[in-house]
Computed example of a mutant assay.
Amino acid sequence: MSDALVTHQDIALRLAIPLEKAHEPRVNTLIQDSEELIQDAFAEVGRDYRLEVANLLQRRAIIRVIREMVATAVIVGPYSGARSVNSSSGPNSDGLTWDKVPEVSFAGVKLTDAHRRALGLVVGNDFAPSWNFPPATRWPLRGGDN
Score class of each variant (00 low, 15 high):
D33M: 06
P25E: 10
V65A: 06
R116G: 00
V65P: 01
R60I: 14
P135L: 12
I62Q: 05
G46M: 12
Q39S: 14
G95I: 13
A82G: 10
G124H: 01
D40W: 09
K21M: 14
P135I: 09
A82K: 10
E44N: 07
A107L: 07
F127E: 05
T97D: 06
R83D: 06
R64D: 08
W139A: 12
D126P: 02
P102E: 01
A118L: 05
H115R: 06
F42E: 00
P25V: 03
R117W: 04
I17N: 02
S88I: 11
A22K: 11
L13F: 09
L13N: 09
H8P: 08
D3Y: 04
Q9I: 12
P135D: 08
H115T: 01
R26M: 15
D3H: 07
S88L: 11
N55C: 07
R47P: 01
R67M: 08
N92T: 13
P25G: 04
I75T: 03
R47H: 07
A43M: 10
A71W: 01
I62D: 00
G90F: 15
G144K: 11
S130V: 08
A43S: 07
R60K: 15
L96H: 08
T72L: 05
P91G: 14
P135K: 13
L51Y: 09
T112S: 03
L51F: 11
G90P: 07
L5C: 03
N92R: 14
H115V: 00
R60E: 15
L15I: 03
E24K: 12
P140K: 11
R47Q: 08
E68R: 10
T97V: 12
I66F: 00
R59D: 08
L111N: 01
E103N: 09
I17A: 11
T29F: 15
N28L: 13
L141D: 14
R117N: 06
R67N: 08
S130H: 11
R47N: 09
S88P: 10
A128R: 12
L51S: 11
P134C: 01
V27C: 05
F127W: 15
V85Y: 11
G46H: 08
A71K: 00
A61K: 13
P78F: 00
V45W: 02
L37I: 12
E68I: 00
R116E: 04
L15Y: 04
F42W: 06
E44A: 14
V65N: 03
L19Q: 07
I31H: 01
P18N: 05
A22S: 10
F133R: 11
T137N: 15
D94N: 14
G120D: 01
E24F: 10
W98H: 06
G120Q: 06
D40Y: 15
N55A: 04
P135N: 12
F42N: 03
A54W: 07
L37H: 15
